[in-house]
Design a protein around this nucleic acid. Structure first.
Lengths: 244, 244
DNA sequence: CGTGTTATTGACCAACATCAAACTTAGTGG
DNA sequence: CCACTAAGTTTGATGTTGGTCAATAACACG
């Protein structure tokens, strides 16, 4: 299980990488009130139209955001890892304009909006760090627009895999050689704007070319460089380890 | 020309709609130092890799953000109207990960990052309003992911036109019956992930069906309801006139 | 050992891309 | 005001990527 003493450890580490935080600020962050809950896979935590009164922080497991389009078809807009605050936007946008759900079993900490707002007012610099976090989210959305708008199927998938590897490495859950595999091909299809059948064939293509390994609990990356160039991947937009 | 006494008028009006601002906060906003400049159409204001030291606020004209993909092809990620702060993200993300350029001749006010940062620290609530603004940007990015990922050509274009109409109406530059037309078909193609030829044919299709009027200085919307339903458009994600 | 979910395959088809050329419009300078 | 140019729009012909449908195979889990 998780150490429930310091649930915001991962967030703290990430914020510290880009913002210099005082000990008062760090204390305020660690002192946020929260409410731990566990969910099985495929559970909606937020629905379109909801008016959440608390933010949700991922302690363990993976979440994703999506929206239904006409007639049952869906588009996934982001994946979220431990250490993320995936719906921080609900702090300022009253009505949710999309769904948030678990992809795997997950443990999340709910933090009342009141407390978060108070934090941003008492510690504006810390608030700015959280703001920055949401700006990286936006940068990832922009990159997805590019991915879906201008790359062919193989490139889209390769790019998504590279992004996952880099983001998971940040939180110690993977690296350039691979990471735990938590997506179905249907998930991949909904994230890349492709059909399941075509995702399947593209994955086979990537395997045949020796860029990734066979299916399993882990996704093995056999040739990082080739995978990155197949997806025209450059990690700049993730803004990791970038100082102000 | 523009009243240069209060360049942040439009921004102020927009922020006030969703956040209750004190007169001290409003004064601070109006008191931001700035530097007015005019640019012709098709001028880069920021390039990938730049490290801007000032934010840019649109007083007049239209800007857009884009990124080059392999081999000269481009993807447009957003359009920006008067009253927008299109690169507020550069306040916290040191390296620009995309281009910002003028679509039409434009007048912009540059505001030093220092002053903006100071503003967010002195007036955290005002900072939060600006934060909210960037969250709406992100909501638009998400909607574009959906548009490009899961809608057919005709729907993508119809959706984009509806979005423009609503956003332009907010700043008094258009409404459901039409708005000034500032996009080339190549722009539309780069924004929707389509080819120019196909955009051309889709526009003809929309005209033939009587949803929009002929090309000109203005885009005339002949049948808003049909256009909105062709694009599966619902304005919720724009979060206009939504109170906290 | 069965049952539901996920992955894989094949056949067929449509939407959209590409290429290349012609036409239209707007802007420029004489 | 006209001629010239460049940018933008339109058209036709042709090709390909990726979608759809439907069936089967492989897992995973109780």
């Amino acid at each position: 299980m998780v150490s429930d003493q310091k649930p915001f450890q991962l967030l703290k580490r990430r914020l510290e990488r880009s913002c210099a935080l005082s000990s008062a600020e760090l204390d305020a962050l660690q002192g946020l009130p929260y409410n731990l809950r566990s969910y099985p896979a495929n559970t909606d935590l937020m629905r379109e139209g909801d008016r959440p009164s608390q933010g949700c922080y991922i302690v363990e497991g993976f979440l994703y955001r999506f929206k239904f389009v006409s007639e049952g078809s869906r588009q996934i807009m982001s994946f979220h890892l431990p250490g993320d605050f995936p719906d921080l936007q609900s702090l300022f946008l009253a009505r949710a304009d999309h769904y948030l759900a678990t992809l795997t079993p997950a443990v999340v900490a709910f933090v009342p909006h009141d407390a978060l707002l108070e934090l941003t007012v008492q510690h504006p610099r810390l608030g700015n760090c959280l703001w920055r976090d949401t700006l990286i989210d936006a940068a990832i959305f922009r990159e997805w627009i590019i991915n879906i708008g201008r790359r062919a199927a193989l490139g889209r998938i390769a790019h998504l895999l590279c992004e996952q590897a880099v983001r998971l490495k940040e939180v110690g859950l993977g690296d350039e050689t691979g990471f735990p595999w938590f997506l179905t091909q249907a998930n991949l299809a909904d994230a890349t704007g492709l059909s399941v059948v075509h995702v399947n064939r593209s994955l086979q293509n990537l395997r045949r070319r020796g860029l990734i390994g066979p299916n399993g609990k882990m996704l093995n990356i056999r040739d990082w460089d080739k995978l990155a160039s197949a997806g025209y991947f450059s990690p700049d937009y993730l803004h990791v380890r970038e100082l102000q």
